[in-house]
């Protein structure tokens, strides 16, 4: 799967950097160049070299609340005390190490694409990311979350961010997001099982089940694998009905997703994360 592949993520990000900044980055400077690019595209710049962490009283939380972004996560949220924040900070570091232990290249993907994490105490546990805020991940950790849960959240959101970058560079759909909300374009969600969602959101949901299943499978947990194996196949069948609304690139991603849904082959998936076979994509330009 191209979208799971670190080489494809790097080349796609490099194309975004070139388009926005006018300069070609090299691999060693790509992370810095992407941060410069993200700073041009979002309301507030990227600060520092690492992943910045903030909380409900930080600038990003205020921005999201002011603009009504991620209301599901911010609604009902309460103040986080110092021990809670210290615990989140520590868990974030351990989560990144956990990702690395499962897959160094998924860690590379998170390191490249995630610039900020906002932690909030909310009644709803989960995470969020947005197309016009590259690099930002918002998360409301569940009370029973341990390091693997946060690790899965970070990879989950990094995959959303990856798909947003790919959409800017290659285009995924032939219609804008608002048009894809129409009833006739909706498709089953692999995550909100049984629900029809706008096509782009259903596609995102299907894509991000893959790394989640992979990470849980790799550590010997069946929860999400059992939950999503069937729902992903159903979602893929429904997404394929909307094939004309996908660009050539989007159809390639969908085709690869459907193949995985039929096989649920985690050994093959591990190869697609790191093999050059799933990189080197050359977008065509109409003449």
């Amino acid at each position: 799967m191209h979208l799971m592949n670190i080489g494809h993520t790097y080349e796609t990000t490099a194309r975004l950097v070139r388009a926005v900044t006018g300069t070609y980055p090299d691999a060693d400077g790509l992370r810095t160049a992407y941060r410069e690019t993200a700073s041009k595209l979002r309301p507030m710049p990227v600060e520092g070299d690492g992943i910045s962490i903030s909380y409900e009283d930080g600038a990003w939380a205020k921005h999201c609340m002011d603009k009504g972004i991620f209301e599901h996560i911010f609604a009902g949220a309460c103040h986080s005390d110092e021990p809670t924040r210290t615990g989140w900070d520590r868990q974030a570091i351990e989560a990144l190490d956990h990702i690395h232990s499962l897959s160094p290249d998924l860690r590379r993907m998170v390191d490249l694409l995630v610039t900020d994490i906002v932690f909030r105490n909310s009644g709803a546990d989960g995470g969020g990311s947005a197309s016009q805020i590259p690099g930002l991940v918002v998360t409301s950790p569940g009370e029973d979350w341990q390091v693997p849960h946060l690790a899965e959240c970070l990879v989950h959101e990094a995959m959303h961010l990856n798909l947003f970058v790919a959409d800017m560079v290659y285009g995924t759909f032939t219609l804008p997001s608002r048009e894809l909300e129409r009833d006739e374009y909706r498709a089953l969600s692999a995550v909100k099982i049984g629900q029809k969602r706008p096509l782009d959101k259903a596609f995102h949901a299907a894509i991000v089940t893959v790394p989640l299943m992979y990470m849980q499978h790799f550590r010997g947990v069946k929860t999400l694998v059992d939950l999503y194996a069937e729902s992903l196949r159903d979602a893929c069948a429904d997404l394929k009905k909307q094939l004309p609304l996908f660009t050539d690139y989007g159809q390639m991603l969908l085709d690869e997703l459907c193949c995985f849904a039929e096989s649920i082959d985690f050994d093959h998936l591990a190869q697609t994360i790191s093999s050059p076979e799933y990189a080197g994509y050359k977008p065509a330009v109409a003449v």
């Binding site: 972004i69 016009q132 805020i133 959303h160 959101k201 995102h204």
Partner: peptide, 9 residues
């Protein structure tokens, strides 16, 4: 601004 959010467990 396409927002993707939710819990997944």
């Amino acid at each position: 601004n396409v927002c993707m959010m939710g819990g997944w467990t």
